[in-house]
């Protein structure tokens, strides 16, 4: 068992898959000579050479499209977006090309590729470098959408994503690349589409994914001090979605809170809440609540920035509310800054 930073776990996954399969290559801005903007690909150029660890010009649409074409022709490209914010100038290749070619070719050309890079809230990066693309990429049939909260899952999920025969959007976080965790020395894969119960509990289910899972675990620990046992489920994959795991947990706990980055409005949490209420209606003792980014573009100043995303206090408030305890919990219908 080794203790690895998440960037090291991701690197180990890519290295192993590149050694295993010569059709895998990594392409993106600054991935080679600069060793990666966040040092995820450190040392990989030296090991694999310029034809497999490829620097690109600042041309996301160009190299994302190159990846799609290479995937059609039998390669397994890993396309790194320096941040998913920059994927918007390439999103046509993700949505109109990668997601659709298997279907519109009548099942002749599949697209085995990974789009990966940091996503969502960072710190003081301002409006254009803080977007969570979860709901955007999860909207489309044909894409898989995967994320992780620790080094163990980052490694096992990225390996599966690289071996998957479909396009996978792999959502990382610049805030947690340095976060350390234990990763077994023996190779393993984590199948895509399997949620993971991070903390068992009987009183309510808190569903989350990505780096917010760690915050939710901290909130669950506080709830436990108050005598409320929250079950924390890390979805890990938004497409495909492990609906069975969600329904099984919520049917048992009878209460559900969904916590995620990105916006409430047409967010992934809205989709999950709708499904839970449809399937688990008879088991629910309270409305499904969501804690997500407030409906504003990300301000720079720290005092404002900290108010935007999910927080322990907001999760506690939502949990209290579904438990029927008096709480100044925010309501979806207002923009009030509570608590």
């Amino acid at each position: 068992m080794a203790t690895l930073q998440i960037r090291e776990a991701l690197r180990r996954a890519m290295r192993e898959e590149m050694i295993r399969d010569p059709s895998v290559f990594l392409m993106g801005e600054e991935v080679a000579h600069y060793n990666g903007a966040y040092k995820v690909s450190q040392g990989m150029l030296e090991e694999f050479g310029e034809l497999r660890v490829v620097d690109t010009p600042i041309s996301e649409g160009g190299f994302a499209g190159l990846g799609v074409g290479a995937a059609m022709a039998g390669m397994r490209p890993i396309i790194e977006f320096m941040t998913w914010n920059f994927s918007f100038v390439a999103i046509d290749q993700v949505i109109n090309s990668a997601a659709k070619i298997w279907q519109m070719s009548g099942g002749q050309y599949n697209i085995p590729m990974v789009f990966r890079g940091p996503n969502g809230l960072a710190e003081n990066l301002g409006s254009q470098h803080s977007t969570a693309v979860d709901s955007i990429v999860a909207h489309f049939p044909g894409l898989k959408v995967v994320t992780y909260c620790d080094a163990h899952d980052a490694y096992g999920l990225l390996k599966s994503a690289i071996r998957d025969d479909n396009p996978v959007c792999f959502l990382e976080s610049e805030l947690t690349y340095g976060q350390k965790g234990e990763v077994p020395d023996q190779e393993f894969l984590i199948p895509l589409g399997q949620a993971k119960v991070r903390r068992p509990g009987k009183d309510l289910t808190i569903l989350s994914w990505g780096k917010q899972v760690l915050m939710v675990e901290a909130a669950a620990a506080k709830l436990a001090e108050q005598g409320i046992e929250a079950e924390v489920v890390d979805l890990r994959s938004l497409r495909p979605l492990d609906q069975e795991a969600i329904y099984a947990s919520v049917s048992r706990t009878r209460r559900c809170v969904v916590v995620h980055e990105g916006y409430l409005f047409a967010g992934v949490g809205a989709e999950i809440a709708a499904r839970v209420q449809e399937v688990c209606f008879d088991h629910l003792d309270a409305p499904v609540l969501r804690v997500a980014n407030r409906d504003i573009n990300q301000p720079y100043a720290t005092v404002l920035e900290k108010l935007v995303g999910p927080s322990i206090d907001r999760v506690l408030a939502a949990a209290h509310r579904v438990m029927g305890k008096a709480s100044p919990a925010e309501s979806t219908g207002t923009n009030a800054l509570t608590p």
Binding site: G62, L66, V68, G69, M72, N96, S97, M104, S105, G106
Partner: peptide, 29 residues
């Protein structure tokens, strides 16, 4: 969107210009 893998016909595309970067990837492979 006519495709035929057996004759390496990698498709017709409806977003004007969007398939041009894909040609690079096919050539790369």
């Amino acid at each position: 969107h006519i495709f035929d893998k057996s004759v390496r016909f990698m498709g017709g595309y409806g977003i004007v210009g969007a398939h041009v970067p894909m040609a690079n990837g096919i050539a790369w492979a």
